[in-house]
Amino acid sequence: MSLPDGVQRRAIDGEEALATRGEPVYGEGTDGEWRRWDLRRSKLGAMLEMDVDTGLAGGETVLYLGAAAGTTVSHVADFAGPTYAVEFAARPARDLLDAAEPRGNLFPLLKDARKPETYAHVVEPVDVVVQDVATRGQARVALANRRFLRDDGRLLLSVKARSEDVTGDPDAVFDEVLDSLAEGYEVLSARGLEPFHDDHLAVVARPK
């Protein structure tokens, strides 16, 4: 498995796990400066564990959409370059600020990922957009934020079927999202995230 620089496999709490070097955020186990990356709380972590070709090498400039309380984006900031973390809900954003405090490269933005024009004056061109937004219209969010991606950049999208259609067949939902994404992206890979996350599809794409 190829991991980005700054992500390692470590024995933590008696079990081998992915880990990054940084201050703990959500009560995760540690081994010295290294902190366990909880794959059941992180779609991107699950993607790396499942050897999805994310294209991440370490040091990238990242736009993270749907940062919530900072569980995953804090790990990203541990191995990436400048990391812009967009979160709309005020309560998790307060925890996100705490996660950012010891990370000088993590920039929380209390904004709506569906309205990129509200943070376009802050975010520089990025190498990677990581999207984990639990809302209807996940493809539209990805398309709206395509403006920030460099031509050779990557979209790492976690599609949550139940957020698109709580009663719909997940496979049908995923097909609709992929069809919509094709308006602005070339999909490089798409696979389910079981057993770590049910009814989620991991998508790697690049801008057309």
Rank of each mutant, 00 (worst) to 15 (best):
F107M: 05
F88V: 15
A80E: 06
L106Q: 09
A85G: 07
H121V: 06
L149P: 05
V86D: 00
R91Q: 08
K160G: 11
K115H: 13
L65R: 00
L155K: 04
F148P: 03
R150F: 07
D78F: 10
T72G: 00
R162A: 12
A161D: 02
G137E: 02
S74F: 12
Y84S: 09
A139P: 09
V73M: 02
V128T: 10
V73T: 15
A120K: 09
D98F: 07
Y119L: 07
A144G: 02
E101V: 04
A144I: 05
D152Y: 03
R146W: 08
A80N: 11
V122P: 14
V128F: 12
A142D: 00
N105C: 03
L156Q: 05
T118S: 03
R114S: 10
F107L: 05
R91E: 15
T72C: 00
D152W: 03
L143K: 09
F148T: 08
Y84R: 10
A90P: 01
A142M: 06
L143V: 11
R94Y: 10
T83S: 10
G66Q: 15
P116G: 08
G104M: 04
V76E: 02
A68G: 12
R94L: 08
D132Y: 03
K111N: 02
V129S: 01
A68R: 08
F148L: 02
V129R: 01
V159Y: 00
T118D: 09
E101S: 08
L106P: 07
A90H: 14
Q131T: 03
L143F: 10
D132E: 14
D132A: 05
D127S: 15
V130E: 03
E164N: 12
E101K: 09
D95R: 15
D78M: 01
A93Y: 14
L65N: 03
P108N: 08
A90I: 11
D127W: 07
R150Y: 05
R162C: 05
F79C: 14
L143I: 14
S74W: 14
R91M: 06
A142P: 07
Q131W: 02
L143S: 02
R94I: 11
S158L: 03
A161W: 00
V130R: 01
A89H: 15
A80M: 05
V130H: 05
D132I: 03
D112H: 10
R162G: 06
D98T: 13
F88D: 08
R94A: 14
A80T: 10
G137S: 08
L96G: 04
T72N: 13
G81V: 13
F79Y: 15
V126H: 06
T72A: 00
G153K: 02
L106C: 01
N105F: 12
D112M: 07
G104T: 10
L110F: 13
P102V: 14
F148D: 10
L157F: 01
L96M: 04
G137C: 13
A139G: 09
Q131C: 07
G153A: 01
G81E: 01
V123P: 00
T135S: 04
A113T: 03
P116T: 08
V76S: 13
F88C: 11
T118M: 06
D152M: 05
R162F: 11
L155H: 10
V86W: 09
G104F: 05
R103K: 13
G70C: 13
V73A: 05
L106D: 12
L97S: 12
S158I: 08
E124K: 13
L155D: 04
V159F: 10
